[in-house]
Design a protein around this nucleic acid. Structure first.
Length: 505
RNA sequence: GACCUCGUAGCUCAGCUGGUAGAGCAUAACACUUUUAAUGUUGGGGCCCUGGGUUCGAGUCCCAGCGGGGUCACCA
């Protein structure tokens, strides 16, 4: 343990003093609550009479104290917000003995302590809805001082903005930064919104393994672990695609999963080693159908989370109202570079890339070069939600070949705020083609591509039994949350983002 | 991985061309019966991220490390 600060020493002393006065700083008995700060503020605002003669009982942390002799004001923060307390000595201590007010309340109750209070609602001279306290009970003592953030007319003073403190000690951040709390409430609304939408269509929410003997479904480096009893390596999943498709083979028409996936790669403001995806597979559908679904679902999410289809994101206002623009990848490149590459061979593509100042190397094939041109010249310009369709075959080993465009697959991504929002295709259900594509991946792996896919015999066996035509979708929940909450960094939408260990010396 | 940048009291931050540590809030004591960034008076509180170096002297300059943030690269 680190050395105690002056504040911490003093708070430990007050613990002893409380005990000497017969007050348990961590009582076990339940304190019954019958209201919240938010409800009181809203209801009293509308109808003062609603609280006539009513004794309310709420609990939370003391966030500030203003003592003026034998009367005091304090601010109580509960899960819903804050409300002012008015405490008068002679009401808290009607008898001769004023110890509870003079000593316990004034000196031994600190900022951050949890208290339960009863009293009645009124409005102060200055018009603030407050609680006239009749009884106060310590529910839990705080031994470390929370940072004190003050506020006047919406302006914050001494707000804690240090990202390190906010991410490492999220419990502190949530207590003192209401905006931070709001982000996480919105994230949950977003997840609920998607779930409602998919449940209404009667798709089945399922769970599939996180520990997998063979990882698959995406191009990424996995985390490896080991099972002791079986004495075998296991991988943390990088995607759940292959398991969900097995369920479509098994006869479900629509399955989805919110899944934590793990990728052992670089970290930056849009990548955390563990992240959440929602993957959906629907039988007898194709990627065109899935585009309609994504538009409808994300539009609903925007409304459920923010009440409108328009969301402020950085400098832009992004509008999720349907319909979204749709381009094939070739059309998009032509639109933003003026060059039509749809008929080019690899040599011509290399020249074009050079002309467009896109850096490429010799290991890149046709598909990769196209992807580089797109990534350099198109993606950064796509702010409003836009579908890009029909990707090069080489980049998409799990997608079905395009019905009438050779060399391409039936795949789309939705791009928004210059970032991929989701990825979807008409799923490859031809087991012979799938085996070939896996084998090509294995070749890439042998040549040193650490992200190449691994051949999954059991998955191929499943396809050989037959999988109906299926549309699949993966949508990044963290990225969508970032957009819907105007968050600059993925760390702002994860309660506990991954960080290097803190040192406690 | 490369480069840039930051690390000083519980919190927010000053600290000059190197001269021995400052403010506001918080905290402690006193006063105050409708305050609201409450106020007034008086105190206490620092391994200046860590370790080396230069120097008579380092919070400050140099090197290395640790941690955070950013840009780029890698990567979906």
């Amino acid at each position: 343990m680190t050395q105690l600060s002056e504040h911490e020493i003093i708070r430990r002393q007050t613990l002893t003093e409380l005990e000497q006065l017969g007050i348990n700083p961590y009582p076990a008995e339940t304190f019954e609550i019958n209201d919240t700060s938010k409800q009181i503020a809203e209801l009293y605002q509308q109808n003062t009479a609603a609280y006539d003669g009513k004794t309310i009982s709420i609990a939370g942390r003391i966030m500030s104290k203003r003592i003026m002799g034998s009367a005091s004001f304090a601010v109580l923060q509960d899960s819903q917000g804050r409300i002012q307390l008015y405490i008068s000595r002679d009401e808290l201590c009607p008898a001769e003995d004023k110890t509870f007010y003079n000593t316990v309340f004034k000196k031994l109750i600190d900022l951050g302590d949890f208290v339960g209070i009863t009293g009645y609602v009124f409005r102060t001279k200055t018009g603030e809805i407050s609680i006239h306290v009749q009884s106060l009970r310590l529910l839990s003592k705080s031994l470390k001082p929370l940072p004190v953030v003050k506020e006047k007319e919406g302006e914050l003073f001494d707000a804690v903005t240090d990202p390190e403190l906010r991410y490492r000690q999220r419990y502190v951040d949530l207590n003192i930064n209401p905006a931070s709390k709001e982000v996480f409430i919105k994230r949950t609304k977003l997840v609920n919104s998607i779930r409602e939408y998919l449940n209404a269509k009667e798709y089945l929410e399922v769970e599939t393994p996180i520990l997998q003997p063979i990882y698959g479904g995406a191009a990424a480096r996995p985390f490896k672990t080991h099972h002791n009893t079986l004495d075998m390596p296991l991988y943390l999943r990088i995607a759940n695609e292959l398991y969900l498709k097995r369920l479509i083979v098994g006869g479900f028409d629509g399955v989805y999963e919110f899944s934590k996936d793990f990728r052992n790669e670089g970290m930056d403001r849009t990548h955390n080693p563990e992240f959440t995806q929602m993957e959906l597979y629907v039988a007898y559908k194709d990627y065109y159908w899935m585009m309609d679904l994504v538009e409808e679902m994300v539009e609903k999410v925007a409304i459920d989370v923010n009440g409108t289809t328009e969301v402020q994101v950085g400098q832009h206002v992004i509008n999720f109202k349907r319909p979204w623009k749709r381009y094939t990848m070739f059309e998009a490149i032509k639109e933003y570079t003026g060059v039509d590459i749809s008929e080019m061979d690899e040599a011509q593509l290399r020249l074009t890339a050079h002309d467009l100042k896109v850096t490429i190397d010799h290991t890149m094939g046709k598909g990769k070069i196209i992807d580089e041109i797109f990534g350099e010249h198109v993606e950064p310009k796509l702010i409003q939600p836009t579908f890009i369709t029909d990707y090069p075959l080489e980049m998409s080993p799990l997608a079905k070949k395009h019905r009438n465009r050779p060399g391409l697959v039936e795949r789309f991504e939705a791009i928004c705020n210059a970032k991929e929002l989701c990825n979807s295709f008409s799923e490859l259900n031809d087991p012979i083609d799938q085996r070939k594509r896996f084998e090509e991946q294995v070749e890439l792996g042998k040549r040193g591509d650490e992200e190449a896919m691994v051949l999954d015999e059991d998955f191929l066996r499943a396809l050989e039994y037959g999988m109906p035509p299926t549309a699949g979708l993966g949508i990044g929940i963290d990225r969508l949350s970032m957009i819907m909450t105007n968050s600059h960094s993925i760390q702002d939408v994860l309660f506990f983002p991954q960080m290097k260990p803190e040192r406690f010396d």
